[in-house]
Simulated scan of single mutants.
Amino acid sequence: MKIETLAIQTTLSHDANAGAVVPPIYLSTTFEREADGSYQHEHVYSRASNPNRQALEKSLAEIEKGAIAFAFSSGMAATTALFQSLKTGDHIIMPDDLYYATSVLVEEVFAQWGLTLTKVDMTDLGEIKKAIQPNTKLLWVETPSNPQLKITDIEAVSDLAHSIGALVAVDNTWATPIMQNCFDLGADVVMHSTTKYFGGHSDILSGALIFKQAGELSSKIATIQKLTGAVPSPFDCWLLLRGIKTLPLRVKAQTANAMELAEYLSNHPQIEAVHYPGLTSHPQHEIAKKQMKGGFGGMLSVQVKGDAKNAMALTGRLKLFTTATSLGGVESLIEHRKSVESPDSPTPENLLRVSVGIEDIDDLIEDWKVALG
């Protein structure tokens, strides 16, 4: 089935109680036991499993073409669980441009547990090879990267990682499975902040890990998920299942809008640079074309001529782009990224990260035209 069909079929309810088309919300934290001590529906306690989370995880695995999925209470909780599956002394390679909190998590939390990290320009396979150590166990890929939209060749990195016995995990939040299937390109694990495009309405906090194959690592994650309890509520799972139904439609509309906006801004005299992999001027455009077969996504970053003050002032003049953190919702958002990271972040001072929504593109372009004067 095509992904548009999967988005519907994997989220349908098969309710034995009332025949409801929309699944009910199971708010119960505990489940009844039979007289012989068994559990008729295999649910014991909602930290371990819940019907809504079970349905969500099944849908996530099928949509990403994976074998098994695990839902978490946030994208960072999902990332944390994967790092917790590593051992003291293991080494991770990450991009030099990635979601800022991910590298901080390793440097400030997991470094105390003996994990080590090397950040490299993952657009350069040679730099990745130089960073490999005897204890390298995980290559963490983020493509497009946050916030400069660098593109990493997932297939090439996967081949390299597997040649040294390491795993590849891809943060596929920005591309989504609508744009990019990481397992087809050789990745072992996919992470999503499902808060973003899967939820799609800026009202859910959640994350997920999906595995290409079920095995020892996925069993470890199942144990970590159960024991640490960083799981989404039944209602959040229900909302995510509802969001998945329209995921392909929303992402395709956002992608089309982002492409037009990127083309407009790339020719504006007040804009220093536009970072969007759909532009032929993007340094890794050809790699993006190869692996982002569904389009180039709804995210772009813009460097305004001038300094941080000029960039911040522009956000105040835009009327249809809400100045706020996060991305992937139906509404358009904009944010001066470096001011929410830190002074030592590699993000340029004049960079604005833009999450393009589903509004009419003519209105969005007119808004920028007026704001840029």
Rank of each mutant, 00 (worst) to 15 (best):
A161D: 12
S145V: 03
Q148I: 09
D153N: 14
L149W: 11
A161R: 03
D153Y: 05
L138R: 12
W140I: 11
I151V: 15
L149F: 06
W140H: 13
V168T: 12
E142C: 12
T152G: 10
G165T: 03
S145A: 10
G165H: 03
A156R: 04
P147W: 04
L167Q: 14
S163D: 10
W140S: 10
D159F: 03
G165I: 03
L149D: 06
L139H: 06
L167C: 11
S145M: 04
E142I: 15
A161I: 05
L139E: 03
Q148M: 14
P144D: 09
P144E: 04
L139R: 01
N146L: 03
G165Q: 02
S163Y: 01
A156S: 14
I164Y: 08
L160M: 13
L160K: 09
L167V: 06
D159Q: 13
V141H: 00
I164M: 07
I164N: 07
S158G: 04
G165D: 12
N146H: 02
V157E: 02
D153K: 09
S145W: 02
I154Y: 10
L167E: 13
E155Q: 15
L167W: 11
I164L: 03
T152S: 15
L160Q: 04
T143Y: 05
Q148W: 02
L160H: 12
V157T: 14
A161K: 04
S145N: 13
V141G: 01
L138E: 15
G165R: 02
Q148D: 10
V141M: 02
G165A: 01
L138C: 12
A169Q: 06
D153C: 05
A166C: 14
Q148A: 12
L160W: 11
W140G: 02
L167G: 06
V141Y: 00
D159C: 05
V141F: 00
T143L: 07
N146C: 02
T143I: 08
D153F: 00
S145P: 03
N146G: 00
V168Y: 01
A169I: 13
V168L: 10
A169H: 07
K150Q: 15
P147G: 01
L160F: 10
S163M: 00
E155M: 14
L160G: 08
N146F: 06
A166P: 00
I164F: 07
L149E: 11
V157I: 15
S145I: 06
S158Q: 02
T152E: 13
A166W: 13
A156C: 01
S158K: 00
I154D: 01
D153T: 10
I151S: 11
L149Y: 08
S145G: 13
A166L: 11
E155N: 15
K150R: 15
L149T: 05
A169P: 09
V168Q: 05
I151C: 05
V168C: 10
H162E: 08
